[in-house]
């Protein structure tokens, strides 16, 4: 058997891909752990500087804001993508006219590029003639019009809205696939026992969808923390830094030649994602154990 394994599944089939992964992704990324601790202009390393790069980052006036924005975007988008995705999936799963249309229309933004979505939403949020303010005025809510992208308190929410528009359809399809694995007779049995729609959702749909929800939460958390394209194309981090997130700081440091600082920021993101994923995973497995005991 072992000889057969060696013959049938030789390492030379594995190596080409693996080498590319190690040389061009793993190695340079991990080398960041070195470059974050040196004084470095991209050509020459001018000595070890300890935590200086990190200290410079923390000394930025907007250090707290950058992390706050990243977390805010992550939290808002995760909540709405999961909640809306779930409700839309339930709606799409009912045998109604137009439910196919719902799927097609909601998935369309998923295939578009973030640049396109970012630019479209800069147009929608444009204060004078943008679609949103026009519609608000048109339905008689003229008092609600805002400078969606230039108001520093609103800007992260506006960017989050664009992300939710783009990806809610993706979450919907994941949940829909989950819903379709739930046997119809569970619902019929529950209905005979007198369970209302709310109870059926609470006691059948939600528990059955648990694994899908967990995957979805982890995926949206990761993509939220990494956010770059939307922020960069919609505001470039503005107005005056009010929508800066970790990845835009990395790019900004890069274009200004602050390589050490940018690498340090990138490493913080690296560690942050690791911590969040491990923490969420722990939380999920702990919850799973508790519910399986009950």
């Amino acid at each position: 058997m072992s000889k057969l394994t060696r013959q049938n599944y030789p390492y030379y089939l594995l190596l080409p891909g693996l080498l590319i992964f190690f040389c061009f992704f793993a190695y340079p990324s991990v080398s960041g752990f070195y470059y974050a601790f040196v004084n470095w202009d991209g050509i020459q390393v001018r000595g070890f500087t300890g935590w200086d790069n990190f200290r410079n980052l923390i000394d930025r006036d907007d250090f707290g804001l950058v992390f706050y924005n990243t977390f805010l975007f992550t939290a808002v988008t995760t909540f709405f993508k999961i909640a809306l995705g779930l409700l839309l999936a339930v709606l799409a799963n009912m045998t109604l006219r137009f439910s196919k249309l719902l799927r097609s229309v909601l998935f369309l933004p998923v295939i578009l590029s973030y640049v396109a979505v970012g630019l479209v939403f800069s147009a929608i949020f444009e204060p004078d003639r943008g679609l949103l303010n026009q519609l608000l005025t048109w339905v008689g809510m003229g008092g609600w019009t805002q400078s969606w992208l230039t108001n520093e308190h609103l800007v992260m929410f506006s960017i989050s809205a664009a992300e939710i528009w783009k990806t809610a359809g993706f979450c919907m399809m994941l949940f829909l696939a989950g819903l379709q694995t739930i046997p119809k007779d569970w619902y019929e049995a529950a209905q005979m026992d007198g369970a209302g729609a709310g109870a059926r959702f609470r006691y059948i749909t939600l528990p059955a969808l648990r694994p899908v929800i967990q995957i979805n939460v982890i995926l949206t958390l990761i993509s939220g923390l990494k956010v770059f394209d939307l922020v960069y194309t919609m505001t470039g981090g503005g107005p005056s830094g009010a929508s800066e997130v970790i990845s835009t700081v990395v790019y900004d440091s890069f274009s200004k030649g602050y390589y050490g600082e940018g690498t340090a920021a990138n490493l913080l993101l690296f560690v942050l994602i690791l911590v969040v994923v491990i923490f969420t995973h722990k939380l999920i497995t702990k919850n799973d154990k508790e519910t399986s005991h009950a």
């Binding site: 190695y27 990324s29 960041g32 991209g42 990494k226 990395v250 990138n266 993101l269 690296f270």
Partner: peptide, 19 residues
Amino acid sequence: ILLAGMILPLTIIPTFIFF
């Protein structure tokens, strides 16, 4: 290692300089 590669972000600046 591959699981970590799926989750963790690229460290883009050292990668760019290396390339």
